[in-house]
Design a protein around this nucleic acid. Structure first.
Lengths: 111, 111
DNA sequence: CGGAATCCAAAGCGATACTG
DNA sequence: CAGTATCGCTTTGGATTCCG
């Protein structure tokens, strides 16, 4: 039962793991979307559009697609009229709560 | 001896703490600069310029100033000729190692 | 050596209008 | 309702040159 220790080292990957994580979290509006879903569980496109004041549907749509591609959220379509689409976090997505809390803790130490 | 629990909640600050942290860490090249300093301790401008392949002096200079403003690094000038300037992490800056490790751990779970 | 100044291309994103 | 399409501005940062 070996666990590989995670240490900090240089990585010449085109995409090192730290960078992958940051790319996902730090795109504009991304962590806010994730936070909404952590708090509310499941939300529709319109809910997010309304909850995140200032976001455009274009950007929201783009961010949601990226998060889905990275398995952070799931997208569920209900074949009704009018359409209904729900978004929620995957298990992997929920793991981001810890990171967001760390970022919050650190951010609070900045004047 | 009360400790305020850090919980995830909506924040309508122009700059919520999570966003502050992310702004610092996720600017292009920022976490790489921090990682270099975590590994090497103290580095000169030229060392960083050489170590971070692809960065331009303009961008490096900009990032260093931002990090200094946020008390993540210190800048020490030795009044010599030719000039010598050294950068290293503050105690606050060193605290970012934990966050970078979390980001790495998470990044490794992404395919 | 450690930057600052300039110029420019690319990306990012908001506003808005439109569609299945 | 849940997006997509288009347009144009703003920001970012790379390349390069120059300076104390």
């Amino acid at each position: 039962m070996e666990e590989t220790k995670i240490i900090l080292e240089r990585s010449d990957d085109e995409q090192c793991p730290i960078e992958k994580s940051l790319t996902i979290i730090s795109a504009k509006w991304s962590f806010l979307i994730i936070r909404e879903l952590l708090i509310d569980g499941t939300l529709r496109f319109g809910d997010l559009l309304k909850g995140l004041e200032g976001i455009s549907p274009k950007t929201l749509s783009l961010r949601l697609r990226e998060l889905e591609e990275n398995k952070i959220i799931t997208r569920t379509v209900y074949p009704e009229i009018p359409p209904k689409v729900e978004y929620s976090l995957t298990e992997k997505g929920k793991q981001l709560e810890g990171i967001l809390l760390e970022l919050k803790r650190f951010g609070l130490t900045l004047e």
